[in-house]
Simulated scan of single mutants.
Amino acid sequence: VGNLACQRDSHLYTLDTQVILCEPLGSESNLWRVELADTVLFPEGGGQPCDTGSIEGIPVVRVERQGNRCLHYCKGGPLVPEQQVRVQVDVPRRTDLMQQHSAQHLLSALLKKRCSLETTSWKLGEETSYIQLDGPLSPEQMRLVEEEANSFILQDIQVTTHSFHPEKDQEAFEGIGRMNRPEDAQDQRVRVVEIHDLDRNPCCGTHVRRLGQLGSTSLLRTEPYRGGTCRVHFVAGTRVQHYLRTLEDRDQAITKALEVPGPDHLDRITQLKAQTKEGRKSRKLALEEAALV
């Protein structure tokens, strides 16, 4: 699947289309499998989770690809083949997924360009995401990449998508990253996402039109992994605000518990640890003295 309405225009949120197939999955689940002539709901792929939304007001809880088919799993039914239906996407979820995915492309390009680190995989998580790299990343490199990524976001650089045929359009594939085509993919065309003068990579996912739509991105931490590789965790878009809000709430809770302002948290914790250690030593000494009586 590479030419769905959601891939031709990631900012298309509503579509009128036709039902091709509708079948129950079982009486217990109350799920119906629906295939449409076209859809604005993206199926899981390219490291990106699927969209959710509705078909004629019926909630769609999962969308998946099977070969060149896009299957929707609806919480209710039935729908009738050839029926005209309206498909709507969960816009906040779509926006969030686009922001994280486009940020991953931007960050992976800069990690390669500035640090000579290749992205071997990535995961778009519920709260934070990570990029797996083929080597270690220092704190200095991490800050450099973050600053440059946000500079590109402020420049509001264009993000475009193209579809090519690998054999017919060989020149168009110069400089494009590796392709991992699913074994059951039947469409020979390859969809390429391009960040102007910075990155060109095959990708089936949904993306922002311009980097300015990310707002900002932040590299949070690195996590050592097998064989000297690492994972760098990041957030982008509205997740940056949510992450900061969570940190602030946590900071306020710790301030209340320790009864000292934020800048003094570490000193207060160090003091409490020393007091606890001293208390244990005193209790041990008291027990030893009591045993001699």
Rank of each mutant, 00 (worst) to 15 (best):
V1N: 09
V1E: 10
A5F: 12
A5S: 14
A5D: 00
Q7G: 01
T14C: 14
L15K: 02
L15F: 08
D16P: 08
D16A: 14
T17V: 02
V19G: 02
V19S: 04
L21I: 04
C22D: 14
C22H: 04
G26A: 02
S27L: 00
E28A: 09
S29Q: 07
S29R: 09
V34I: 11
E35R: 09
L36Q: 05
A37W: 12
T39N: 11
V40Y: 13
L41I: 01
G46W: 04
G46A: 12
Q48D: 13
G53W: 14
I55S: 01
E56D: 15
E56G: 15
E56K: 15
I58Q: 15
V60L: 02
V63Q: 00
R65G: 03
Q66L: 07
Q66V: 08
G67D: 08
N68A: 07
L71Y: 11
G76P: 10
G76M: 14
G76W: 13
G77Y: 08
G77R: 08
V80F: 05
P81W: 15
V85D: 11
V85H: 15
V85F: 15
Q88P: 01
D90Q: 06
V91C: 06
V91G: 08
R94T: 08
H101K: 03
E118P: 02
W122R: 03
K123T: 10
E126H: 14
L133A: 12
G135V: 01
L137S: 02
E140S: 00
R143V: 01
R143I: 00
R143Y: 00
L144A: 10
V145S: 07
E148H: 05
N150V: 10
L154Y: 10
T160C: 13
E171V: 03
F173W: 15
F173G: 02
G177C: 07
R178S: 15
N180Y: 08
E183S: 10
R189K: 07
I195K: 14
D197T: 11
D199L: 10
C203Q: 07
G205H: 04
G205D: 13
L211W: 06
Q213V: 03
S218R: 15
E223P: 03
P224D: 02
Y225I: 04
R226E: 02
G227P: 00
G227K: 15
R231L: 11
V235Q: 08
V235S: 05
V235F: 02
A236E: 10
A236M: 06
G237I: 10
T238N: 12
R239E: 00
H242P: 00
L244W: 13
R245N: 03
L247M: 06
L247P: 00
D249H: 10
R250I: 01
A253Q: 13
I254F: 07
L258Y: 12
E259Y: 08
P263C: 13
P263D: 11
D264R: 05
I269T: 01
T270C: 06
Q271E: 11
K273W: 12
Q275R: 04
T276A: 03
K281H: 09
L285Q: 11
L285K: 15
A286H: 11
A291L: 08
A291D: 00
L292M: 05
